[in-house]
């Protein structure tokens, strides 16, 4: 499968998001220091590093989900298409429609499969008619490789699906709002190997339309699905570069120690 995934190379070097000199504080705790990362268009970027290194924190900065945490503050600059997302004029609600998110644990709403996927389009008024909404739901579920499994039970509750199906439902839900960037926080950590393989394949397909950022604990997963990799350690961005370079010729000794299993 690795070969299959590597065939598709980075198609563009266009910057979607640019982060410069980002600092994050949780109260007194300086959780993230001097992070510079570029998120390229139509590229999968992987964030790796040991637990507590700040990779999920940084991911949550990219769509301002840290705003919902008491006492968290962000400094520095994060640009989406050249616009500072922490600018006063930016509405975090609109930002999150452009930068979607999939979480570690599948979190379908206690609604039907259809309503789960239609949630975002309904909120943002993306569909002009019921037929159009039906079409968005179907295409989102197809993109998430879930359509064939659920097309006969769109009215069944989303919580009744299996774990892997739930996670793909959450991906379909995020895709339905047509975001520019899709953030995934360890999307496979609650899944078995088969469901993981399905989600990984899906991530690679999503790359055709979106920028994908994925936080993962599995270095094999980062190597399989990403084109760019950023390695975080103790709140610092240690190294950022092409995935093949990070895994074959790491420049920093800490990166080498982590990917060879000596730290972390």
């Amino acid at each position: 499968m690795k070969d299959h995934l590597e065939r598709r190379m980075t198609t563009t070097d266009l910057n979607r998001m640019t982060a410069r000199n980002v600092q994050v504080y949780y109260g007194q705790n300086h959780a993230l220091k001097d992070v510079d990362v570029d998120i390229l268009d139509k590229t999968v970027t992987a964030f790796i590093g040991p637990s507590g290194c700040g990779k999920s924190t940084f991911l949550r900065c990219l769509n301002r989900m840290n705003d919902t945490i008491q006492g968290a503050s962000v400094e520095g600059q994060i640009l989406l298409e050249g616009e500072d997302i922490y600018d006063r004029r930016v509405d975090p609600v609109q930002l999150r429609a452009k930068v979607g998110m999939v979480f570690q644990k599948p979190n379908p709403f206690p609604k039907s499969v259809y309503d789960n996927v239609a949630y975002g389009p309904r909120i943002h008024g993306l569909a002009r008619s019921k037929a159009e909404l039906d079409q968005i739901v179907e295409s989102s579920l197809r993109r998430a490789a879930l359509w064939n499994e659920v097309k006969d039970r769109l009215t069944a509750p989303g919580t009744g699906l299996s774990g892997g199906q739930q996670q793909r439902l959450c991906i379909a839900r995020a895709v339905a709002t047509n975001p520019e960037v899709l953030l995934m926080d360890e999307p496979c950590s609650a899944l078995d190997p088969i469901a993981t393989a399905q989600v990984e394949e899906l991530i690679d397909e999503l790359r055709a339309n979106f920028s994908v950022v994925i936080v993962t604990h599995s270095m094999q997963q980062a190597a399989r699905v990403s084109q760019k990799t950023a390695f975080f350690h103790l709140g610092h961005l240690v190294e950022y570069g092409d995935t093949t370079q990070i895994f074959t010729k790491p420049r920093d000794p800490r990166t080498e120690a982590y990917i060879t299993g000596r730290i972390g």
Binding site: M65, A97, M101, R173
Partner: peptide, 13 residues
Amino acid sequence: PQSLRDGSLGLGA
């Protein structure tokens, strides 16, 4: 669960 709120807020609600 907080995860449901995160899921909804993360979709731009």
